Amino acid sequence: MDKLKQFKVSGTDLNIPPVPQEGRNANAIRDNLKLVKLPPGFKIDLFAVVPDARHMAVAPTTNMLFVGTRKTTVWAVTDRNSDGVADEVKPFAPSLKFTNPNGVCWTRDGILIVAEHNRVLSFPAAEFFYEGPDVAVGEVVPQGKLIPVEEESFNHGARTCRVGPDKKLYITLGQPFNVPPREKLELYNKWGIGGIVRMDLDGSKREVFATGVRNSVGQDFNPKDGTLWFTDNQTDGMGDDIPNGEINRATKPGQFFGYPWIQGKTRITENGYDKDPLPPNVTPAQVLTEAHAADLGLVFYTGKRFPAKYQGGIFSAQHGSWNRTKPNGAQVLFTSLKPDGTADKTEVFASGWLDDETGTLRGRPVDVAVMKDGSLLVSDDYAGAIYRITYQP
Rank of each mutant, 00 (worst) to 15 (best):
K3T: 11
K3S: 08
L4T: 04
F7R: 12
G11P: 03
T12A: 12
D13G: 13
P17E: 11
V19R: 02
P20L: 07
Q21D: 06
R24K: 06
N27F: 07
L35M: 07
L35C: 15
L38C: 10
P39T: 12
P40A: 07
G41N: 13
K43D: 08
D45Q: 15
A57P: 03
A59C: 06
P60C: 04
L65W: 03
R70T: 08
V77K: 00
V77G: 01
T78V: 07
T78L: 14
R80G: 15
S82R: 05
S82F: 15
D83W: 12
D83N: 14
V85H: 14
V85K: 14
V89Y: 03
K97D: 15
F98D: 01
D109C: 11
I111P: 02
H117A: 06
H117E: 09
N118I: 12
R119W: 10
F123I: 09
Y130G: 06
V137R: 00
V137F: 07
G138L: 04
V140C: 07
P142V: 04
G144Y: 13
G144E: 10
K145W: 11
P148D: 10
V149D: 09
V149S: 08
N155P: 10
G157T: 11
A158S: 15
K167S: 12
P176C: 08
K184V: 09
K184A: 08
L185K: 04
E186R: 14
L187D: 04
N189G: 14
G192M: 02
G195W: 03
R198T: 01
D200S: 12
D202F: 01
R206P: 02
F209M: 00
G212C: 05
V213P: 00
R214Q: 15
P223E: 15
K224M: 10
D232S: 06
D241T: 15
I247E: 01
I247N: 00
Q255M: 15
P260L: 11
G272E: 14
P277Y: 09
L278D: 12
P279T: 13
A285V: 07
A293Y: 08
G297E: 02
V299N: 00
Y301E: 03
R305D: 01
G313C: 13
A317P: 02
N323E: 11
T325H: 09
T325Y: 10
K326H: 09
P327C: 10
N328F: 02
A330S: 10
F334S: 02
P339I: 11
T342D: 13
D344I: 13
T346H: 06
A350L: 01
T358S: 13
T360K: 15
R364E: 07
R364F: 07
A369L: 02
D373E: 05
G374Y: 00
L376I: 02
D381C: 08
D381L: 14
Y382M: 08
P393W: 04
